[in-house]
Each structure stands twice: as C-alpha cells, then as structure tokens.
C-alpha cells in the first residue's frame, strides 16, 4: 500500500530518517558485521594479534561437547517453558472467557507479571526455593525431597523453567483471551444446539479457530526462552551448577566477557543470529497462511 498524496522535498525526508538510520547503522548493522568478521578470526584476549582462520571457530564450536550440550539444554529449556506457559495460559484464558462475572478482575490479577523484569522474576523464585530458608524448599523437605539448586543441576533447571514460565503466562493469557473473544459466538452456539458438549466444542471448534494465535505465541515464546531469559539465568544460577543451566545466550556472554574468547563468542553470536532470522522468516511465511482450518 502506498500513499497517493505525498509531500515534495529532497532534504526533508533525509533529515527525518537520519536519526533512525544512523542508530541502526552504528549500533546494529556495524556490530552485526563485526560479529561476522570476528567469527572467522583467531584473536588473543589482549587484541595484540589476530589471524584469519576461515571457519575454524565454527568447527571448534561444533566439536565442543560443552557447546553441543548447551544447544540441547536450550532446546529442552525453551520447549518445556513454551509448553508450560502456553498450556497454563490456555486453560486460564478458556476459563476466563467462560465466566460471566469477573473476567476483567481476573485479567487484572493475572497480567501484571508481564511487568516484572526477568531477572527480578528469577530472584522471586530463587528466594522461595532458597535451600536454607525458602518456603517451598521447606514444603518439599516436608514431602521428603531435598531441594538444592546450588548442587543439583536438575533442580536448577526446574527453577529457571518455573521462573521463566511464571513470567510468560500473563502475556500468553492476554493473547489467548483476545483470540477467544474474537471467535464468533454463533459458531459455538450452533454446535451446542447440535448437541456438542463443552469439551467437544473446544476440541473441534474453538481450538482450531485459535490456531493462528497459538502458532504466533509458539514462535514468540521460543524467542523469549532463547533470549529474554538471560536475566533469569544470570541472576540466579550463573549457568551453574556445572553448566547445568548454561543456555546459548548465557554462553555467548560468559565466553565473550568472562572467558574472553572473542572469536568463539562471535561465532556463537552468528549462530544465534541465524536462529533468530530463521524464526522470524518462518513466522512471516506461515503466519499469513492461517494455519489449520
């Protein structure tokens, strides 16, 4: 779509676009190309010497069991987080759409975790599961489980999944609720008249009609779990114990800023960029074709 009526002027549009284009070039395009360039260099930590090594950095990465582990861990973490937060949000949204009274009230009380920073969400759950004084740790001990995410990698992973999902449920809930409210009542009513019960209606009408929303949220949630959860990991587990919670984005940071392996970190950045670009393209390709109905 284009405007028919436009203003004339040669320098005005240049001035209008200058700030955004400048910032994009300086802080996006240039660093991204730097990352590409560095990913094919071998450099010592002080920047004294550098050597062109083609794709060696990538080869080293994919031969590194730690990196492959981190890939698998990230895949596990993001799929469990996405499944958990989408599932809970869908149940809550369907219930909130059903009740006659109080939808707005429930919504108010369910959406505010969106405003909590991931790192802060991490701290909240960290405190509840604190091995010495945490309330839930106490409860678990009472049930016979010794929770200690300082030592136990599985506990640490469970902790970051809980914190990440808790924060994301509110976002998914809002979108599911908006999607549910956009479904024409007449369809559901017609099915009810034909004798379909609530569960059958959900399975055969509501859920398929909701699939564009679900698909969109799936991509958003995976991106969230890949990138926005850095704060949670950094604040509460620092990737530990024994790398058990080192997800990819945390590894880029720790290899680059703590390990000072510039080439390796840049190569990881490039791989992550490829992941984001693939997800974005995937979303743009398929979101238009109204998924399954």
């Amino acid at each position: 779509m284009e405007k028919r009526v436009v203003f004339s002027g040669r320098w005005v549009p240049v001035l209008l676009l200058a700030p955004q284009v400048t910032i994009t070039l300086v802080f996006f395009i240039w660093p991204a190309s730097q990352a590409l360039y560095q990913s094919v260099l071998l450099e010592d930590a002080f920047g004294l010497s550098r050597k062109f090594v083609w794709l060696d950095n990538f080869r080293i990465l994919f031969a590194d069991p730690l990196y492959l582990d981190s890939f698998g861990r990230t895949a596990f973490f993001s799929s469990v987080t996405a499944a958990l937060s989408l599932g809970l949000a869908l149940v809550l949204a369907v219930m909130a759409d059903r009740v006659i009274k109080g939808t707005a009230l429930y919504r108010t009380f369910l959406i505010w975790p969106y405003a909590v920073a991931p790192a802060v969400a991490g701290v909240l759950w960290f405190f509840m599961f604190n091995p010495s004084i945490g309330t839930l740790t106490y409860l678990l001990r009472f049930l016979g489980y010794q929770w200690n995410h300082y030592l136990n990698g599985t506990d640490a992973m469970a902790l970051i999944i809980l914190a990440a999902s808790w924060k994301q449920v509110s976002y998914n809930f809002l979108f599911f609720l908006a999607g549910l409210q956009a479904i024409p009542r007449s369809l559901v009513e017609a099915a009810a008249i034909d004798g379909a019960g609530p569960f059958k209606r959900f399975r055969t009408i509501i859920f398929p009609l909701l699939s564009p929303t679900t698909f969109f949220l799936l991509v958003v949630n995976i991106v969230y779990a890949f990138f926005d959860t850095f704060g949670i990991v950094h604040a509460i587990t620092s990737g530990g114990p024994a790398q058990a919670t080192t997800i990819l984005v945390y590894k880029v940071y720790s290899d680059g800023f703590i390990g000072l392996d510039l080439g390796g970190s840049a190569a990881q950045s490039v791989i992550l960029m490829a992941v984001v670009i693939a997800l974005t393209v995937f979303q743009f390709r398929y979101i238009e074709r109204k998924v399954a109905y």
Binding site: F28, A32, V249, A266, S269, L272, M273, V276, T280
Partner: peptide, 22 residues
C-alpha cells in the same frame, strides 16, 4: 529494509561488538 533488519537482531546476539562500538 535497513530498519526492518533490526527486528531480527536483539541485543543479546551481538553483545560483544555492540559493546565495542559503545
């Protein structure tokens, strides 16, 4: 298009070089 690409580059994936620029 130049502006559009930034959609795909969250700060997390290009931290080191952006830090260098800043």
């Amino acid at each position: 298009w130049l502006i559009f690409v930034t959609l795909m580059l969250p700060v997390e994936v290009r931290i080191l070089p952006t830090f260098g620029v800043v």
